[in-house]
């Protein structure tokens, strides 16, 4: 009996050792788990939502500015627009995200990673099996088509096939031509998500932003149901927007915060710290805060 036990123990040790040996020299970081968003950065832009007419810090081009200035918040009252989900390059800005892996149970090869966003409950898949992106005429979606690879301890993801989305929830658009590169980096129990958006249609320069999360071992994500309702009577073919030059709210942000109006128009220059020197040369808006 004793000899059998000891033989079993030897086998277990060998198997364990073999298991360690089978791991790659640089063990791949595990990103799976429930992660809770931290809001020490860009808070007004996130949970409360951006103010009307504030495009500062976004490298939007003239065309995008014109679109944003035409945007009316009443769009959110349209039934078909009430449950539009945040695009993949924006959705993780809110509350929790949950990450899990699909692994081939035989080979232990990582096939895909998945992220569910609390915001709108969307789920994205990041293919880790080296597959190609689809042809350009395949469907574009809010989550797009993503492939990923580990660069050292960082997961790098490339996403194409996005349908039109937004960079900020006040009308600043991101086109369906955009490509998105993300990096997910874990340090202990902190995860950092970097997003790099290239959009030749609507950006003067690529746009970069990042968000931080902490691991929440007891976290559970709540559901996020959305059902469209008709909130008000609307004429046929009504689409709320402002004609050029007629949006009455564009000055509001500048006036309320004492910021030069021009600086609130955004553009690549407004992303950089040196822009503070430029702002000091600009006239402040007139009129009391409303």
């Amino acid at each position: 009996m004793r000899s059998v036990l000891s033989l079993t123990a030897v086998r277990a040790v060998v198997a364990l050792a073999a298991g360690f040996l089978a791991m790659p020299a640089a063990a791949q970081v595990n990103l799976a788990g429930q992660w809770t968003g931290m809001y020490h950065e860009d808070f007004p832009d996130r949970l409360p939502g951006p103010e009307l007419g504030d495009y500062g810090g976004l490298p939007l081009n003239d065309a995008n500015r014109m679109r944003a200035e035409a945007w009316s918040a009443s769009i959110l009252s349209l039934p078909l627009y009430q449950c539009r989900v945040h695009p993949v390059d924006y959705a993780a800005s809110f509350a929790q995200i949950r990450i899990w892996e699909t692994v081939d149970s035989e080979t232990q090869q990582l096939e895909a990673m998945h992220i569910q966003h609390f915001a709108w409950g969307t789920i994205r898949t990041i293919w880790m099996d080296g597959r190609e992106h689809p042809p350009e005429y395949a469907q574009h979606t809010a989550m797009g088509f993503s492939t990923g690879e580990f660069i050292g301890q960082t997961l790098r993801v490339r996403t194409t096939h996005l349908k039109e989305g937004w960079l900020r929830r006040n009308g600043v658009a991101r086109s369906w031509n955009a490509t998105v590169t993300e990096h997910f980096t874990r340090r202990e129990d902190v995860l950092t998500w970097h997003v790099y958006i290239e959009d030749p249609a609507y950006l003067e320069e690529p746009f970069f932003r990042n968000r931080d999360y902490v691991l929440n071992p007891t976290g559970r994500m709540g559901p996020y149901p959305c059902e469209s309702v008709i909130e008000t009577d609307m004429p046929e073919n009504y689409f709320p927007h402002y004609l050029p030059g007629e949006n009455p709210y564009l000055q509001e942000f500048a006036v309320n915060h004492g910021i030069p109006y021009e600086a609130t128009r955004g553009g690549a220059a407004t992303m950089y710290p040196e822009y503070m020197d430029t702002i000091r040369q600009m006239p402040l808006p007139e009129g009391p805060a409303q």
Partner: peptide, 15 residues
């Protein structure tokens, strides 16, 4: 002409 679409694409175009 162009890519396979869902409602979102048609809404963006109609907009």
């Amino acid at each position: 002409h162009g890519r396979l679409s869902g409602l979102g694409d048609v809404l963006d175009y109609r907009e």
